[in-house]
């Protein structure tokens, strides 16, 4: 009972006052420069969206699983190599690349560079301009479109030409193996990747636009390599047209 009056003094009751810990600080309020809020409550709008996507995806999977069976080949046999022996589709692009250069270059160096590029990307292109807009600008969209077309043509040409006139075979005896296996493929790929960058650089493109070109070359090349490895490689990992595969080999069975 003794300390009751003191309590009253420090925390007076019923004065109608409220207290908060506040501090003045430099900086913008979250709403500076923003228009009126056009927001909706997550409950239930976002949740309904999510349920809709969940149902859509599950239904699509459900019906696909009814008509297409997952493959099960003969039991694994280390003595009998399948022909062709293909990696899963998402690595078959790398396997295609292996046909054209030294395995360390195709299997380790190039994927390593790609992962490093992806990780470094936001720290190289850090301007906040045009974030949240598809392709940033009209020009960005055009750059993406043209580099995609260019990369598809260039990579297809590289695969087809190197398959027809193998650098490995042409230079056998004429130059050391590392020229055909390391130097030339690196130079050709560097040329394919850097040509659009050089063109854009000369036109005074922004970092973002150069990144769009680089990313598009990477994505389009990966698509071309994957399609080539998946659909156009038959027994012996030789190149065939998908509808002319020998020995009744059907690439889709490997899915």
């Amino acid at each position: 009972m003794n300390d009751a009056p003191m309590n009253e003094e420090i925390f007076p009751k019923g004065t109608g006052k409220s207290y908060a810990l506040v501090e003045m600080m430099r900086g913008e309020s979250p709403m500076v420069g923003k228009g009126p809020e056009k927001t909706v409550f997550s409950f239930p709008v976002v949740l309904l969206w999510e349920i809709l996507i969940l149902l859509g995806v599950t239904l699509a999977l459900f019906f696909f699983s009814l008509v297409k069976q997952a493959p099960l080949d003969a039991i694994a046999n280390p003595q009998v190599t399948t022909d062709p022996a293909k990696a899963p589709w998402y690595f078959v692009g790398l396997q295609e690349l292996l046909e054209h250069m030294h395995p360390t270059l195709a299997g380790i160096v190039i994927p390593g560079i790609l992962v490093l590029f992806l990780v470094a990307l936001p720290y190289l292109d850090y301007s906040r301009e045009h974030a949240g807009v598809w392709f940033s600008t009209r020009r960005g969209k055009r750059i993406a479109g043209w580099t995609a077309l260019y990369a598809v043509v260039a990579m297809t040409a590289f695969i087809v030409l190197d398959n027809a006139f193998s650098m490995r075979e042409l230079l056998r005896g004429a130059a050391p193996a590392w020229v055909a296996q390391w130097l030339l493929p690196s130079l050709i790929l560097a040329l394919i990747v850097l040509l659009p960058v050089a063109v854009l650089w000369r036109k005074g493109a922004s970092v973002r636009e150069i990144m769009i070109a680089l990313f598009t070359v990477m994505l389009a090349s990966a698509v071309v390599l994957t399609i080539s490895g998946f659909l156009f490689r038959g027994p012996g990992f030789e190149m065939y047209l998908p509808w002319q595969m020998p020995d009744g080999y059907n690439p889709w069975n490997d899915f």
């Binding site: 080949d73 694994a76 899963p88 790398l94 395995p103 380790i108």
Partner: peptide, 24 residues
């Protein structure tokens, strides 16, 4: 699944990892 498809796909994939310099 331990069928031919998976066995040889993993063999191919693991061989790629084996090409890394030094640590391969």
């Amino acid at each position: 699944p331990w069928d031919q498809l998976s066995y040889w796909a993993i063999t191919v994939g693991a061989n790629i990892a084996g090409y890394a310099p030094v640590a391969g």
